[in-house]
């Protein structure tokens, strides 16, 4: 099976820009920063900016939009957190989505926690849960695989764009990547990537 997706395509674009090949390296949340500082990777994709991380790595400009949203069928009327009362909501246990929806859910909201995204998606598609809280990328996956379902975005809980990170002090590589992103924003190819893989154009202020 050929692995493909937003990050895979972005890695290929970066490699082409630098005149080399892309060597994809699998990482986990635990070895995220060490993989960079120890030289196992030259570049990390899909890393959220934080002041704490900025002390140990250098970030590029954002390259992909990311947000968490409450999604559900058109006919379920939900416009804000208060409307979650009396609704069943599927979420992946212990994730950012879980944290964010738990913060705002009113008493009477039934948050059903699953151990992975397949559980969340199955609960939603089967009707076991009326709503789900997922990232825009998961929503796009569901749309791509189940075009008839068409879950609608009810409201957003959190916005946090994805950045790339390079080893601290690698100003040359950081500059090259930012130049690439600027050219992709200018010629529309970054927007094309978002539409292709996330099923939505880049936000206007991106």
């Amino acid at each position: 099976m050929t692995v493909q997706g937003y990050d895979v395509e972005m890695a290929e674009i970066i490699a082409k820009h630098l005149g080399v090949k892309a060597d994809l390296v699998g990482i986990t949340g635990q070895n995220l920063i060490p993989s960079l500082s120890e030289g196992k990777v030259d570049l990390l994709l899909s890393i959220g900016f934080s002041d704490e991380r900025a002390l140990v790595v250098d970030f590029t400009d954002p390259y992909a939009p990311y947000y968490i949203a409450v999604m559900g069928p058109e006919e379920v009327a939900v416009a804000n957190a208060a409307d979650l009362a009396g609704k069943t909501i599927a979420v992946n246990r212990g994730t950012l989505e879980d944290t964010e929806v738990t913060k705002v859910a009113p008493a009477g909201a039934d948050i059903q926690r699953y151990s992975d995204y397949n559980g969340v998606i199955s609960a939603f598609l089967s009707g076991q849960a009326q709503l789900m809280v997922v990232g825009n990328d998961v929503g796009a996956t569901i749309l791509a695989k189940n075009p008839a379902i068409k879950p609608v975005e009810k409201f957003q809980l959190l916005t946090s764009p994805s950045n790339m990170a390079v080893k601290k002090g690698e100003a040359g590589l950081q500059k090259k990547l930012n130049e690439l992103l600027a050219s992709m924003r200018a010629d529309g190819s970054l927007n094309d990537l978002a539409v292709k893989w996330l099923k939505a154009p880049l936000p206007k202020d991106f």
Binding site: L18, D23, G26, L44, L45, Y117, T141
Partner: peptide, 23 residues
């Protein structure tokens, strides 16, 4: 340039589309 490749870290626990969330 010397290696002829760039090592790009991508989340291995993610589905092919892309990581579920920036961590």
């Amino acid at each position: 340039a010397k290696a002829g490749s760039i090592k790009v870290g991508i989340f291995e626990t993610s589905p092919p589309l892309r990581p579920w969330a920036p961590t």
